[in-house]
Amino acid sequence: MPEPVIALHAVKKNYQDVPILDIPHLELPAGIYWLQGENGAGKTTCMKVMAGLIPFKGEIRLRGEVSSKDHPVAFRRLINYAEAEPFYPAFLTGRDLLELYLGTKGGDRQLIGEIAERMGVHIFVNNPVSTYSSGMLKKLSLLLAFTGNPAVILLDEPLITIDTRTLAIMYDLVRTRHANGVTFLITSHQPLDPEEVTITGTLRIADKNITLN
């Protein structure tokens, strides 16, 4: 089996006393994975755990050496996340957020500028996010997920609320970045277009655990 890009060891997550995730072991080599599960199965929680957004028990390792416990900063540099329903403080502009992400995650500023133009984000980037529609917020959130030099990008329900033109751009970005070695974990209730991306494997989340088919 090839070297895993992301490996989960004894990952447990409870909300108060209610167990949501209990994943003894999961290793994923580079690829594009479709994370499936019913509503409330724990897909978003799983992504938030992987992205370092919420605390959990256990350990996640990226590229075999970067640990969520021991290298929290390096870990976050290697994993990006786009939320299903992103929201940010009302007074921030898209530019504020882009500068924050580029300033911390790094990456090619010019490339991000080009993607922003392709998506049409540059038109509203100087306006406060409080004026954005859900689609505009989603575009911004997707753009932020492509900043830096991540090993893994987590996309939570990327197909919802965006227009068909942006959808084509997103598929193109997934293909291009994957060709450069980036692994994708994508949750979606709608099937991903097989003509646009080739799925490496399907992950099924049920009974608090994830299994790779």
Binding site: A51, G52, L53, I54, P72, V73, A74, F75, R76, R77, I79, N80, Y81, E83, P86, F87, Y88, P89, L100, Y101, T104, K105
Partner: peptide, 17 residues
């Protein structure tokens, strides 16, 4: 409350404690 509600996205950023 502000940090809890609005700044959770910042936890994904590589910023040291």
């Amino acid at each position: 409350a502000f940090d809890d509600t609005w700044l959770n996205f910042m936890e994904n950023l590589p910023i040291s404690t």
